[in-house]
């Protein structure tokens, strides 16, 4: 086929490929520069060195990390964040998969109406719910506790997650559960013993995306938590390094070390599970 083409087209096509790769190379450099700067600054011996263009520290100063770790200090807020993330993630995985299973497999009157409601809730702008939710949690005496950050996720687990599970379970052949049903399996056993093992890819996807959401969440901890002892790690960094507390330029390198530390878990998970991750975005995006 290529032989049949005029030479001119082939040359232009080779030039075109070079242009494409050059553009990609330039753009990827621009895209990654902030991250490279963050890591490089976090390893520099002091903030003054950030004045130079070089991304290579004159002396790689790993001690910035323990310094930041102790100064923030990381352990308490980190433990709080792990606690909240683990429970919220567990609650939303269990709850969203059960709900998604019902929408994918069980036939009950009004299912389509409930499903339409589910889809509509994805379009409600969160702003309208902020104050009433706060007042509700205030009335329940849940302010300054982790309950507002955890309990709601056990009741549905979020519309996007339910949707993702439903889509995935629908793609599992129904013959398997029909056979089990004929054998007298209860619906719950079919879910627990047949569907759950088969839906592990969806669990991984939802878990990876959910981890990022809960770990990085700023707004909810910011409005619901007051006591410093209850800080999530992101909230703690905000309290000590926001401009309200004074902008400490001489701490540039330690601030960036803190930033690397707080984003590290997300990076590790992203690089391990990027396939699941990207698939999750495509499923909730394209098919949504």
């Amino acid at each position: 086929m290529v032989r049949g083409r005029p030479v001119g087209l082939r040359v232009r096509s080779a030039v075109w490929r070079v242009v494409v790769y050059l553009l990609l190379l330039v753009l990827v450099t621009v895209a990654l520069l902030p991250l490279l700067w963050m890591v490089s600054t976090s390893l520099k011996p002091g903030f003054l060195e950030a004045y130079s263009l070089s991304l290579l520290p004159s002396k790689v100063t790993w001690s910035n990390y323990p310094d930041t770790w102790n100064r923030v200090p990381f352990p308490g807020p980190m433990a709080n964040t792990i606690f909240i993330t683990a429970l919220a993630l567990f609650g939303s995985l269990v709850s969203a998969s059960i709900t998604g299973y019902a929408f994918a497999r069980l036939r009950f009157p009004g299912r389509e109406v409930w499903f339409a409601i589910l889809i509509m809730t994805m379009l409600i702008p969160p702003a309208i719910m902020i104050i009433p939710q706060y007042l509700l949690f205030n009335w329940l005496r849940w302010i300054d506790s982790y309950k507002p950050l955890i309990v709601p996720w056990f009741f549905g687990g979020g519309a996007f997650r339910i949707f993702l599970f439903r889509q995935f379970i629908k793609s599992i052949p129904e013959e398997l559960d029909q056979a089990a049903e004929i054998d007298g399996c209860s619906t719950f056993r079919i879910f627990a013993q047949i569907i759950v093992p088969l839906m592990m890819p969806a669990v991984a996807t939802v878990a990876v995306l959910g981890f990022m959401d809960f770990w990085n969440d700023f707004f909810a901890p910011f409005i619901y938590l007051n006591n410093v002892d209850k800080d999530t790690i992101v909230l703690r960094l905000f309290r000590i390094w926001s401009d309200a507390e004074g902008y400490m330029r001489e701490e540039l390198h330690t601030v960036m070390a803190g930033n690397v530390l707080v984003t590290l878990p997300a990076f590790i998970i992203f690089f391990i599970a990027q396939k699941r991750f990207i698939q999750g975005i495509v499923t909730t995006g394209i098919k949504g």
Binding site: L27, F218, R249, L252, V255, N259
Partner: peptide, 28 residues
């Protein structure tokens, strides 16, 4: 993956990073 990587830094960490990156003296 490379083009996705900057999106992993989200929320507060992203805002803090850009805040320091735009520092008049020492920002990138």
């Amino acid at each position: 993956t490379l083009f996705y990587t900057p999106s992993i830094v989200a929320g507060y960490a992203l805002a803090l990073l850009w805040n320091r990156m735009m520092d008049p003296q020492y920002g990138l």
